[in-house]
């Protein structure tokens, strides 16, 4: 029996035509050339990635009539998260998560690093702002009935994001390592431990042992700056994908307008 080798597939579409060459005589003015260079770079990237169609579909998608300012709360939460990520990364450049250096390094950031109190303040207040925005966003979705079919999964993902964000607040609270954050964490871990059966083991996991020990702080730091942010970023991506794929809902006070004959029939 002869071996049959399948033919390679033909390309499905023809490639887009190459941009026209500039005319050799004279040529456009320098300003036009500069403008075209930007377009040229965008076109070069687009031709190789197809990112233009994706961006256009994302930014210029249709939204229902009646879309209002309440619909911006989700984006506001996203930007609060991005602000936390950026300020957090820069705070990590000065912070030292060891029990005997943590407090001093936070004092150093606050009092000595240039703009340190501003960046730390942004991170500290941004955390509260993010939680508030999440609850406002959740309230908007709830009262507009936007969690209903086919968007239930996005509601579930949103709830997981809420829990993860609260986890960020809990793990981040310990990092200044002053009296308040130490005892608040002791109390918080013990509240977590009151969950029956699994609670005590989860507390041991959080503390890395039966007592608040040498590695508890670095463990909280790793959870705060790596584990939970990665999970949040991944889930936000899925959350946004579903928002774009399913579209947003019209506000509940806006009734769908039926075509003329049907409108008469309904009366």
């Amino acid at each position: 029996m002869a071996i049959r080798i399948p033919k390679p597939p033909l390309p499905g579409r023809r490639r887009p035509p190459r941009p026209a060459e500039p005319p050799p005589d004279g040529g456009p003015a320098l300003k036009d050339q500069a403008a075209e260079a930007g377009v040229g770079i965008a076109g070069w990237v687009d031709e190789r990635t197809g990112v233009g169609g994706f961006t256009k579909g994302m930014l210029f998608r249709k939204v229902p009539k009646g879309t209002n300012w309440f619909y911006t709360l989700g984006s506001a939460t996203l930007f609060a998260f991005l602000s936390q990520a950026v300020t957090g990364i820069f705070l990590a450049m000065y912070y030292d998560p060891s029990p005997d250096r943590a407090y001093d390094s936070v004092q150093h950031i606050t009092n000595e690093v240039w703009l340190g109190d501003l960046v730390r303040g942004m991170h500290r207040w941004g955390a509260t702002v993010m939680i508030v925005l999440i609850f406002l966003h959740m309230g908007r979705v709830f009262f507009f009935g936007a969690y209903k079919y086919p968007r239930e999964l996005n509601w579930v993902i949103g709830v997981v994001l809420l829990v993860l964000t609260l986890g960020m607040g809990f793990t981040g609270y310990l990092l200044p390592f002053d009296q308040r954050s130490f005892w608040a964490t002791v109390v918080g871990v013990n509240i977590n431990g009151t969950a029956p059966v699994l609670g005590p083991y989860l507390s041991d996991f959080l503390r890395a042992g039966p007592e608040f020990g040498a590695t508890t702080l670095s463990r909280f730091y790793a959870i705060h700056m790596l584990l939970i942010p990665i999970l949040i970023a991944a889930l936000i991506t899925i959350h946004l994908y579903l928002v774009v794929k399913l579209g947003t809902t019209a506000p509940p006070w806006l009734k769908a307008k039926l075509p003329e004959p049907l409108e008469k029939e309904r009366v």
Partner: peptide, 14 residues
């Protein structure tokens, strides 16, 4: 850990 009662059935839940 604190917050975990030990009377009666509670000792088996914690």
């Amino acid at each position: 850990d604190p917050g975990e009662p030990l009377d009666g059935l509670w000792q088996y839940l914690y």
